[in-house]
Write a protein that binds this DNA or RNA. Structure first.
Lengths: 156, 156
DNA sequence: CAAAAATGTGAATAATTATGCAAGAAGAAA
DNA sequence: TTTCTTCTTGCATAATTATTCACATTTTTG
């Protein structure tokens, strides 16, 4: 039921203007989904729906999948490998993609990552501490995990 | 002062993660702007800043309203169709719009797209691999997604 | 200049959202 | 089936946001 309800939420938000979760609850009720505001709060979080205020008042909006999210969807393809020595982590990417991937890593603002330096197909990731290198590698790998089930990249 | 403060708000939101208006007030205070939550509520509305909840909790996000997105808003109208054979993807556009649309596709610098060649109303998109053709088509279709949503799909 | 209108703000509070907790449902394991 | 997890959800309430009211300041108008 949850899944269908969340689909219904997207449809409703795409159609009419919803200002509050209570209002959304009303609309859902008419569509055959009776839930409380608490559940909607959770649904909206899971859906990544945003709430923006405009002069006419607040309203919920489907967040347009932003550039970074789209980029992230392809990290699995772009990252060729992750290695490390005693002091830094090195990420190998497809040719010319290092800048883009580094950008995404930077934007994570992960406390364990001090910063990145990107060349053409290589990124140098500086960990907050050399002791955290395994953790940093895990973090970067986790970026690819979503894509793990897709077929491995085969180059032309 | 108000104008400078709102500029500062944008900067802060672009830099770090802000979960609440109180938190934003703190950050602003350090930047030399002492205001209350009430004022920030108004500022955020005027700025059109959004608040989205993610698994880690709520956070404020600058709503993307940039030029490219506006361009993309027209893509749905400009793209007439997307087809492919065993080796290339062909995008049909409105007369004279192929160059413009190809430009946008190029700017994606998507790893799965080697390059484009645009005529008057036809674009030839070369995929990184013929095996990736379905993915490439998906990518291009996703550019139109904003429009696709307006067409309410019948659902279960 | 004086009066009137518009603007900006804080304090208090109304409105709304997020969450801790507990309970029921649906599976998974034995 | 029984037991143990894992999900979902509602209730109550904590946390947060939006708004009303009052007041001060600035801007506009006559």
């Amino acid at each position: 039921m949850k899944q269908k309800r969340q689909l219904a939420i997207k449809e409703i938000l795409g159609q009419r203007i919803i200002a509050t979760q209570e209002e959304l609850a009303q609309a859902l009720k008419k569509a055959g989904f009776a839930v409380t505001q608490a559940t909607l709060s959770r649904d909206l979080r899971e859906l990544g729906v945003g709430r923006v205020s405009v002069p006419e008042g607040p309203r919920y909006v489907l967040q347009p999948e932003n550039e970074e999210q789209k980029m992230r969807a392809f990290l699995g393809y772009e990252i060729e490998g992750i290695r490390a020595n005693e002091s830094v982590v090195v990420v190998k990417t497809l040719p010319g993609r290092a800048q883009g991937v580094a950008e995404i890593i930077d934007n994570l603002r992960h406390p364990l990552v001090l910063g990145t330096l990107a060349g053409d197909n290589t990124i140098l990731v500086t960990p907050a501490s050399v002791k955290k290198i395994p953790d940093v590698m895990r973090v970067i790998r986790s970026l690819m995990s979503e894509q793990a089930r897709r077929r491995p990249a085969a180059s032309s």
